[in-house]
Each structure stands twice: as C-alpha cells, then as structure tokens.
C-alpha cells in the first residue's frame, strides 16, 4: 500500500467544533482530493505533512510510518521527506526567486546567496519559465508567477511524496496545461507519490488514479 491513513481530529474555532474522521488505504501512486471548502482537505494534508497532529490514528506513506499514536511515533516535518505546495505559496519575502528555489538545498544557519546556482536550479527556472524573474522578489511577481516559484521550490528537494494544494488555480489555461505535464514529468522522473487537492476536474483527470471526495470531515464514497 502506498497511502494508508486512519485519523481523527477535532478542531475548535471559537464556539464551533469540527470533527474529522478519515480512513483510507490505496496502492495508487497519485490520489486527488476533491470537496467543498471547509470539508477538511487542507487539514488532512497538514496532518500528513506533520504540521498538525491527529488526536488518534495512523499515517503511513509508502514504507514509512509518519504517525502512529499507539506506538508513539510522530515524525517531525523535517523527517518526512516530502514537499508541500501551500495554497498561500508561502514564498519567503526576503529572498529572491532563485534563493527561494535553492532554499532547501542549503543547510545550516545561512540562506543561499543571490548568486547561488547549479544545474538543477537552472533547469527548474527554465521548466517553469522563471529565468527572467530569477532575481525578483516575491512581492514583485503576479499570483501565477508566485505559484510557479512555489512549485519549483517544492520539486527541487526530490521528495518521496508531493503534496499539492490547488497548485494551478492562478494560471491561465495554456500555462496550466503545460505545467501539468511538467509536474507529471518530474513526478515520474523522481518517482514520487502525489496527493493533490484541486477543484479543477481536468487536474483530477490528468493526475489521479483515485479520487477522494471529502464532505464535512468525512469521506464520501
């Protein structure tokens, strides 16, 4: 099995409480998550990324147990070897496009310099049509350009699992079509699992071998 999870989580927002209970197992390599906003899609992805802890349950991706309440296993986000494309992009505002993309390649307490470059970075800049924007700052870019930077940054780590939260929403039709193929090509090249949240039926058709439909924190299938 590539994806196994059985998790429960109660979220409190003021007076409101939201119950999430999801059970799923699949040997597919690419799975899409579909559902109205507020259904718990991003919450699920955050639990898989290790940014939110389930109350009880188990998360196993590939051969790696990310979380197991019974055995008291809870890997840090840093240990999960995954890439997460945030809906809000979360590009670092004080770093240029090229520095943002090379950010994960440099460990330690210093950021990559503005000139830091290698073949991998150049290739991604080219693939995502960012060559002319390499030295711009995120606030100087349009929504669609920021989205492409965030995608490139997620892919450069060569993750075992790729989590994409609405990755093409800000792109025009042509670019969306092209970037889908790029992402799929990279996915096949680095041989990683893919979990994608999208409202776009074409994304789902293009990527997913299986589709999960979420409603009110439950699986609707």
């Amino acid at each position: 099995m590539n994806f196994i999870w059985n998790v429960q989580k109660t979220l409190l927002a003021g007076q409101r409480s939201f119950q999430l209970h999801l059970e799923y197992a699949s040997s597919c390599k690419s799975v899409a998550i579909f559902g109205p906003s507020g259904a718990g899609k991003t919450t699920l992805i955050k639990m898989i990324a290790g940014l939110l802890q389930p109350d009880i349950g188990l998360i196993k991706i590939g051969s790696c147990v990310f979380f197991d309440k019974k055995q008291k296993i809870n890997l840090k986000p840093q240990q999960r070897n995954l890439a997460y494309f945030f809906q809000s992009y979360s590009l670092f505002p004080h770093l240029t496009v090229q520095q943002n993309i090379s950010f994960p390649l440099k460990k330690g307490i210093f950021n990559p310099t503005k000139k830091y470059n290698n073949l991998e970075i150049s290739l991604l800049l080219e693939r995502f049509e960012l060559v002319n924007l390499a030295h711009q700052y995120p606030h100087e870019l349009s929504g669609g350009q920021q989205q492409r930077v965030a995608l490139a940054r997620a892919l450069i780590t060569k993750p075992k699992l790729l989590l994409l939260d609405e990755p093409f929403s800000m792109l025009d039709y042509q670019l969306r079509k092209r970037l889908r193929s790029e992402v799929k090509a990279i996915q096949q090249q680095i041989n990683c699992l893919l979990l994608i949240i999208s409202h776009d039926q074409e994304d789902v058709d293009f990527f997913a071998e299986d589709v999960l439909i979420l409603e009110n924190g439950k699986l609707k299938k």
Binding site: G50, Y84, F92, I109
Partner: peptide, 27 residues
Amino acid sequence: VNVCYEQAASVLGISNFSIFFRIILPL
C-alpha cells in the same frame, strides 16, 4: 512574522534552529 513561512521551511527539511536565523530573524 507569519507562521506559514516557518511551516514551509520545516517541510523543506530545515531545522527549527536554522529557521530562526534564516526566516524569523531577517523578517
């Protein structure tokens, strides 16, 4: 400093100690 930057950096494999110097302090 928005927590989402710290989350993004942690998922990218950067330690919390480094995140403080690379993200939080510069911002």
